[in-house]
Deep mutational scan, measured.
Amino acid sequence: PQEEYKKRAKKALKKGDEDTAREALKRAGLSPDQAEEFIRRFL
C-alpha cells in the first residue's frame, strides 16, 4: 500500500539514499514532481 512505500522512502532518506526514496515514491503512485516535493519536505 501507499503508506508502506512512503515509510520506506522516509527510511531511505534518513540514510541519505534519495534514489531508493524516489523509487519507493514512484511505486506509491506519486508523480516525479510529487516525489521531489515529498523529498524536499523531508530533508
Rank of each mutant, 00 (worst) to 15 (best):
A35F: 04
F42D: 02
K11C: 13
K6Y: 15
D17S: 04
A9R: 01
I39V: 06
R27C: 09
T20E: 13
Y5M: 09
L30E: 01
A21E: 00
L43A: 09
L30M: 12
P1S: 14
P1A: 14
E3T: 08
F38I: 05
Q2N: 10
K26M: 12
G16S: 03
P32N: 11
I39Q: 00
L43G: 09
Q2Y: 12
K7P: 01
L25C: 01
Y5R: 03
R8F: 13
K15S: 13
K6A: 08
R27M: 15
K14E: 15
R41A: 14
F42L: 06
R27K: 14
P1C: 05
K11Q: 14
K10F: 13
D19P: 11
D33V: 11
I39W: 01
K14F: 10
L25E: 00
K11Y: 10
E36G: 04
E36H: 05
P32E: 12
Y5V: 04
A28S: 06
E4Q: 09
A28R: 01
R40L: 09
K6G: 04
Q34P: 00
P1K: 14
E3V: 08
A35D: 01
F42I: 08
R22Q: 04
A21G: 03
E18G: 08
G29Q: 04
Y5C: 08
E3W: 12
F38L: 04
R27L: 15
A21P: 00
Q2K: 11
K10Y: 14
K10L: 15
Q2W: 12
I39M: 05
K7F: 07
P32G: 08
E18M: 15
L43T: 09
K14D: 09
L13E: 00
L25Q: 00
K10R: 14
D17Q: 07
R41Y: 11
A24V: 14
T20D: 07
F38C: 07
R27F: 11
L25P: 00
L43K: 13
A9H: 02
L25I: 02
K7H: 08
E36F: 05
E37N: 07
P1R: 14
A21R: 00
R22I: 05
I39A: 01
F38E: 03
E4K: 11
E4A: 12
R40T: 08
E18P: 11
R8Y: 12
A24T: 07
A12R: 03
P32D: 12
D17L: 06
Y5K: 03
Y5F: 13
K26T: 09
E4P: 06
E23P: 00
I39T: 02
F42Y: 12
A35Q: 08
Q34M: 07
A12E: 03
A9M: 02
A12P: 02
G29F: 03
G29N: 04
Q34R: 05
A12H: 05
A28M: 06
Y5G: 06
R40D: 06
I39R: 00
D33P: 07
A9Y: 02
E23D: 10
A24Q: 13
P32I: 11
Y5P: 04
R41E: 13
L43C: 10
P32S: 11
R22H: 05
E4F: 14
E23G: 05
E4T: 08
K14W: 12
L43P: 05
A12K: 02
E37P: 00
K11S: 13
A28Y: 05
Q2A: 13
Q34S: 06
R40M: 08
G16N: 05
A28L: 06
S31L: 07
Q2V: 13
G29R: 02
Q2T: 11
E18S: 10
I39L: 04
E36C: 14
I39G: 00
A28P: 00
T20H: 06
I39F: 03
P32R: 09
A9P: 02
K7S: 09
L25H: 00
Q2D: 10
L43R: 13
K26N: 08
R41K: 12
L43I: 09
R27W: 10
R27E: 12
A35C: 07
K6Q: 09
P1W: 15
F38K: 01
A12Y: 07
K15Q: 14
Q34L: 06
I39H: 00
R27T: 08
T20I: 07
Y5E: 10
E23R: 09
K15I: 13
S31W: 04
D33I: 11
D19M: 13
A12S: 05
R41N: 13
Q2R: 11
S31I: 03
A9K: 02
K6S: 06
K11D: 15
L13S: 01
I39D: 00
E4Y: 15
Y5Q: 07
D17P: 00
D19A: 14
R41I: 11
D33R: 09
L30Y: 11
K7W: 10
K6H: 07
K14G: 09
A9T: 01
K11A: 15
R8T: 12
R41D: 12
S31D: 08
A24N: 13
P32Q: 11
L25S: 00
D19W: 10
K6I: 15
E36M: 06
D17F: 04
I39C: 04
S31H: 06
K14V: 12
F38A: 03
D19S: 11
D19K: 14
A24I: 15
G29A: 03
K7C: 03
A21V: 03
E18D: 07
A21I: 03
R22N: 03
F38N: 00
E36S: 07
G29C: 04
E36K: 05
G16I: 02
K11W: 10
E36V: 05
A24M: 15
L25T: 00
P1G: 13
L30F: 12
D17I: 03
K10W: 14
A12G: 02
K26D: 06
L25N: 00
R22M: 06
A24S: 07
R40Y: 10
A24E: 15
D33C: 06
L30W: 06
R22D: 01
G29Y: 02
A12L: 07
L13P: 01
L43W: 11
D33K: 10
F42C: 02
T20W: 06
K15G: 10
K6D: 04
T20M: 08
T20N: 07
R8K: 14
R40P: 00
E4G: 08
E3N: 10
P1N: 14
G16Q: 04
K6N: 04
L30S: 01
A12V: 03
D17G: 03
R40N: 08
A35G: 03
E36P: 00
P1M: 15
E18T: 14
E18H: 13
E36A: 08
A28T: 04
R22G: 02
A21W: 02
D33H: 09
L30I: 04
S31N: 09
K7G: 05
K7I: 12
E3Y: 09
A28I: 04
T20V: 08
T20K: 10
K26H: 11
K14N: 08
K11G: 06
Q2M: 13
G29V: 00
L13R: 01
E18F: 15
A9F: 03
K14A: 14
G16H: 05
R22S: 02
K7Y: 08
K11E: 15
Y5W: 15
L25M: 03
T20L: 09
Q34H: 05
Y5L: 12
L25A: 01
A24D: 10
K26E: 09
S31T: 14
R22P: 00
A28F: 04
E4D: 12
A9V: 04
D19Y: 10
G16L: 04
K15Y: 10
L30G: 00
R40W: 09
L13Q: 01
R40H: 09
R40I: 08
K7T: 10
K6M: 15
T20Q: 09
K14Y: 11
P32A: 12
K15P: 01
K7D: 13
D17N: 06
G16F: 04
E23W: 09
D19I: 12
K7A: 13
T20A: 14
P1L: 15
F38S: 01
F38H: 02
A35V: 14
G29I: 00
E18V: 15
R41L: 12
T20F: 07
L43V: 08
L43Q: 11
E18C: 06
F42V: 08
S31Y: 04
L25F: 02
F42E: 07
F38W: 09
K10E: 15
D17A: 05
F42A: 08
K10M: 15
K7N: 12
K11F: 08
A21D: 00
E18A: 12
I39P: 00
Q2E: 13
R27I: 09
L30C: 06
A28H: 03
A12T: 02
I39Y: 01
F38P: 00
E3G: 08
K26F: 11
A28D: 01
R8D: 12
R40F: 09
R27N: 12
K26P: 00
D33A: 13
A21H: 01
K11I: 14
E37R: 07
E23N: 07
G29K: 03
A24Y: 15
A21S: 02
F42P: 01
D17M: 06
A35L: 09
A35N: 01
K10Q: 13
R8S: 10
D19N: 12
A21T: 02
A35M: 11
D17T: 02
E23K: 09
